[in-house]
């Protein structure tokens, strides 16, 4: 199983990024190999539709699960179509959250917010 998570830095000790679509990096943790790899979120610089593009990259990375503090409507629609489940992160690092998820301590993310459409957040 692959778990994706928006992160602030390209390192294993990184914190979770408060934004999904505009996160600088995504980490994908593979539970089989117990390894996490990060990649640059090219959607972060998009003028609009960052959520759609970022969600596409998560789908293309083969993730089954996304851990995130929040998520926009459009990205949620992409994840629904792709069958990826979203869980809400808690305080702590990215790895803390992955462990919390594996221990069954994270809840499904049930709320999404309308896009900011360039009006700022």
């Amino acid at each position: 199983m692959k778990i994706a998570i928006p992160v602030d830095e390209n390192s294993l000790n990184t914190g979770v990024c408060i934004s999904f679509g505009r996160a600088p990096y995504f980490m994908v943790f593979d539970t089989d190999t117990k390894k996490g790899e990060s990649y640059v979120n090219s959607a972060a610089e998009s003028q609009g539709g960052a959520g759609v593009k970022a969600a596409q990259s998560i789908v293309d990375a083969g993730a089954d699960i996304l851990l995130t503090p929040r998520c926009g409507d459009n990205a949620v629609e992409v994840f629904k179509a792709a069958g990826i489940k979203l869980y809400k992160t808690k305080d702590g690092s990215a790895m803390d959250n992955i462990e919390a998820f594996l221990a069954g301590n994270l809840l499904l993310l049930t709320e999404s917010h309308p896009g900011f459409h360039g009006h700022g957040g």
Partner: peptide, 19 residues
């Protein structure tokens, strides 16, 4: 699409009208 109004999921494009 420079506005990211399209995604490709489960073998078909998905259109985001408002984008």
């Amino acid at each position: 699409c420079q506005y990211n109004a399209l995604a490709f999921i489960r073998n078909k494009p998905l259109v985001f009208e408002e984008v």
